[in-house]
């Protein structure tokens, strides 16, 4: 990929949007897996018990939630980097 500094405002906006969309797609796939696979496999997961928590129950009550929080902060930081790369506020 060429250096954003040599691009026009339009080109930069386009490249930025492409990278953003890629990031969104990847994170949405993770979101989908973390949200719904534990529901489908709950009986199998419940066979594993850690510190009193059946794993299937644990995923629904804590495990998935932790992944969600981390993902959102990751997206905010990743986008801040992307903003800088493509020259936020360059008029």
């Amino acid at each position: 990929m060429s250096d954003p500094k040599n691009m026009s405002r339009e080109q930069r906006a386009e490249a930025y949007w492409r990278e953003n969309q890629r990031l969104i797609t990847i994170l949405l796939i993770i979101w989908f897996v973390v949200s719904y696979v534990p529901i489908l496999l709950v009986n199998q997961l419940n066979a594993i018990v850690i510190a009193g928590f059946p794993l299937g129950y644990y995923m629904g009550s804590q495990g998935s939630l932790i992944v969600f929080v981390v993902m959102i902060f990751y997206y905010a930081f990743a986008m801040r980097r992307l903003d800088e790369k493509y020259g936020l506020n360059v008029k």
């Binding site: 994170l27 949405l28 979101w31 949200s35 969600f68 959102i72 997206y75």
Partner: peptide
Amino acid sequence: WTGGYVLLALL
């Protein structure tokens, strides 16, 4: 009610 925030943040 938590996973929805991922959609909110990304989309």
